[in-house]
Design a protein around this nucleic acid. Sequence first.
DNA 1: ACCTGAACACCGTTCAAGT
DNA 2: ACCTGAACACCGTTCAAGT
Lengths: 225, 225
Amino acid sequence: MPPTRTAVRPSLSRELVADRALEIADTEGLESVTIRRLATELGVTPMALYWHFKTNDDLLDGLADRVLDAVELPERSGEWAADIRAALVALVTAMRPHPQAAHRVAERVMAHPKGLELTEAALSALSAAGFSPEAASYLAMQALRSAVAMVTADQVDDSGQTAEEREAHLRRKQATIASLDPAQYPAVVAHARAMTYCGDPESLFALGVDLFIAGVRGLAEGQRR
Amino acid sequence: MPPTRTAVRPSLSRELVADRALEIADTEGLESVTIRRLATELGVTPMALYWHFKTNDDLLDGLADRVLDAVELPERSGEWAADIRAALVALVTAMRPHPQAAHRVAERVMAHPKGLELTEAALSALSAAGFSPEAASYLAMQALRSAVAMVTADQVDDSGQTAEEREAHLRRKQATIASLDPAQYPAVVAHARAMTYCGDPESLFALGVDLFIAGVRGLAEGQRR
DNA sequence: ACCTGAACACCGTTCAAGT
DNA sequence: ACCTGAACACCGTTCAAGT
């Protein structure tokens, strides 16, 4: 019965495949996203995926695009600091559920309509703040990278591992730091707990945004001094 | 004549292998650093490298450590802003020749004596600035990520390619941006040139450092208000 | 201590073919 | 349009063995 064939295995689409790939990336890391692995999970031949994606790289782009698809564009207020903050928060919010994919997402920003909207908002805000095109461009890119930094801040490194592996890694790391010579690295040893466990992710997230905004504000004041 | 055997192929060492790996990473990207490829270049069996490195991951750690080895530790001045700036500049200076390895280097900072020295300087400076252990730890890590961002700023994405490929990619990107609808993305189109070509890397580098310092200074003032 | 050789289970990708 | 099958050239890694 050919009509119910889709009940057995719904035919693939670029979005469907990319979403499955994103799930793999979230749980096991980006480098677990392979054509062959993905094909097996989708119950399909590796070659089937080549109809939807040119290469494995293209697949990873598709995965990143799914994250950008979810960006909810902020409305402009006209106040430059508020606008650039809103753009930054919008991007970070979309990326937070997918820290493992963050780097890829950043690379795709200029190739995606939502990414371009965010960049547009950032650039016009920075221009309004008085920065030259060169400075504004650099700061916009730095905002992008700050967003990646915020999103990946909890996990000490973004080597793709499962959640349990990463926790174990964190514990090992804290033990290592705590066992350092306090005479040689007093501040590091004193910060062992704070460096590895983040009690309140929300407040650190806010701190990251504030840091960037404060930096831009400081530079802007210097600029027009 | 066994004594001159070393003239044909000097015996391997962890540092020698890592340095060759770093060269490959610099010219062709991190993912071109494979055990087999490296073995071929060194005129040796793939398995020979397993004597010096446990896994391919360990090899990449070794490569990153070579970058950190070259860090020249700044002397402390006692003024916190100057001290954290000096630490940031020291790290960026060491990483700049190796942008492709920057991410890996950042991950190794807490596992390397030079990295620990930098962290020690950053944490004690941030404590002196009045930040809590949690905030200081977060800002120190953000400094690290800012450093990575600065180093990789020129190359639009860090997908490992040769220098020529990256230039071509840049040109293509500029063309793409320039061909966007100016009605929809006026600021982006206006910044097409500034976004893709960086006239003076030094000044942008300075801007990145200034941005971070200004941000920390702004937060510190808010903190003790 | 330091390196070789054979083997295994992965991987991306091309080409030709099926429906 | 959408997918299969066989094949090729890579890859990391284990195990046993050589000197």
